[in-house]
Structures are given as C-alpha cells and as structure tokens.
C-alpha cells in the first residue's frame, strides 16, 4: 500500500517534469497524458508480444514517442496560449479513441502481462532526470529557454532559433511522459485506455502550476504534495478532487506563480563557485 503511494508519487513527479520541460520553452501541453499512454502501450507491446527486456522496451518507447512528439509539435507549435491548450487536448482525445479501437492492443479491454518495474526503477529515473534538469538549470540553454518563454519574438529577432528549441522541448517532454507511462504499465501489469483520459493530462498540468513553473523543484513539490496529501490526511482521500480544486483555486488567487515561484539567475557578475 505504502509502496503503491511511493510508486505513484514517483510517476507523477516524472509526469510533472515532462510538462515542465515543455513549459520551459513557453508551451503548455495537455497532451502528456496521451504521450504517457503511448509510452505505456508501446513499451507494453514490446515486452509482452516481442519479449524485449524491460529497459530496452522503455528506451524504445521513449524514443519513438519523442519522435512522435516532434512530429506533432512541428505544426502544433504554430499555435500558442489557449489555442495550443485546445489543440493538445484534441490530441489526447484522439489518442484515447484510437487506443480503444485498436484490437491488437486489446481495445477497450486493455493490455496485460507486463511486469518488472519497481519503486526503485521509478526513483532511479526521478534522480536521473532531476540531475539532468538541475544541470540544465545552470546552463546557457536554460537562459535561452527563459528568453524564448518570456518573449519569443524578441528572442528570434536576436538570433535564437525559437522554433527549434520549442520542438526539442516538446519532444523531450513527450519522451519523458512515455518513460513514465512505460514504468507505469510494467508496474500495474494491466492497462486500459481509460487510465489515460484527459483528466490525467489536466492533473499533471495542475501539479506543475501548483508547485511553480519557474524551477524544477516546483513541479516536484506539486506532484508530491498533491499526490500524497489526500492519502496522508485521514478521510481526505474521498474528497480528493474537491481538495485538489480548492487548493489550486486558492493558490492561483494568492500566489499565481505557484508555491515555489522563484527563478534563480543562471549567471552572476562575480565568480563564486565554478
């Protein structure tokens, strides 16, 4: 039971970071639940029907979903703001209906037989991705992404290839969501299309918004708090959506940038460490 909670917290951290990576370049994606589904199913098919080892299946699923993400992003990122929210929501619905109507992977009935993922795997992935994001947060690339997020037009006019950066972020976010999905399917051992509805995408975005969009700790904190809080406080579990909704509404009113709103400078004029 406790193991389950730990596991889902880890998965949600990975998913929150997958949204955070896309948000780094200023795009908000409501399609990460769909990328998670694609990762869960493709990794599942590879290990169940083709007997691939789990690690290889996960890597292949993440890679394939990343490529798919780039293919979707290239036209989709011409839209912005609420238009992009609508478009990515549409992607989520389309993916779900496709999964339900694809008999090879079990259709509405679902796909079973995956195994092998443990809590350790998930937290291994969390640490790995966390270190990469921390490394990124101190790099020149982070600075360029901040510029793109703040004013895309100015960044482009000053020589930054904004389209490239946005597509790369979208692809990486999609790949990470797929990795989380693959781990999820190999832990649950049975998945159905309804596990990956639009609400999954919505919740994940809200984790990030709750924790704060300006640093990698915000997404982490948001995922941990909103996953564990209803479980920890007795009697709250059945009020989960209500607590969740109220927390978000109040937080946005009080502190619209999330719980951890700061952004730390990527470069100081004086040399401290280095």
């Amino acid at each position: 039971m406790i193991q389950d909670h730990l596991f889902f917290t880890g998965i949600n951290i990975l998913l929150a970071w997958s949204v955070y990576i896309i948000l780094l370049s200023g795009s908000l994606s409501f399609a990460n639940g769909a990328f998670m589904a694609i990762g869960a199913y493709s990794a599942g098919v590879l290990s169940v029907k083709f007997a691939w080892p789990m690690a290889l299946a996960l890597a292949a699923a993440a890679l394939a979903t990343g490529v798919l993400g780039a293919l979707i992003a290239t036209p989709a990122l011409r839209t912005r703001g609420v238009y992009l929210i609508l478009l990515t929501t549409g992607v989520t619905f389309c993916v779900q209906v496709l999964l339900e109507n694809f008999d090879y992977i079990g259709g509405v009935g679902g796909l079973g037989g995956m195994s092998g993922a443990t809590v350790w795997h998930v937290y291994g992935a969390v640490v790995l991705v966390g270190v990469l994001l921390w490394w990124l947060s101190r790099s020149h690339l982070q600075r360029m992404l901040d510029a793109v997020r703040e004013d895309e037009q100015v960044a482009a006019a000053l020589g930054i290839n904004t389209v490239y950066l946005k597509v790369v972020c979208f692809a990486l976010g999609a790949a990470l969501a797929a990795l989380a999905g693959g781990l999820y399917s190999h832990y649950m051992s049975f998945i159905r299309p309804e596990n990956f509805g639009v609400l999954v995408s919505v919740y994940v975005v809200l984790y990030v918004v709750f924790g704060g969009v300006n640093n990698l700790w915000g997404a982490l904190l948001g995922a941990v708090v909103l996953t564990l809080l209803p479980e920890l406080i007795r009697g709250l579990a059945s009020w989960r959506p209500l607590v969740f909704g109220l927390l978000i509404v109040i937080l946005l009113l009080v502190c619209p940038e999330g719980l951890l709103p700061w952004r730390s400078a990527t470069l100081k004029s004086r040399v401290n460490d280095d």
Binding site: L28, G81, V82, I85, V202, V205, L206, V209, W239, R240, P241, L242, F244, G245, L246, I248, V249, L252, L253, P256
Partner: peptide, 20 residues
C-alpha cells in the same frame, strides 16, 4: 498574460463542481 492562469483556475473550479 493571465490567459492560461484563468483557464487553469476555472478548470479547478470545474473539478470542485464535479466532486460536489
């Protein structure tokens, strides 16, 4: 600038209404 914030906030209100 607050276009997305407003959308997310109303989304959260929607979750509360569903639960109630």
């Amino acid at each position: 600038d607050a276009q997305i914030t407003a959308a997310l906030s109303s989304l959260a209100v929607g979750l509360i209404v569903i639960d109630l």
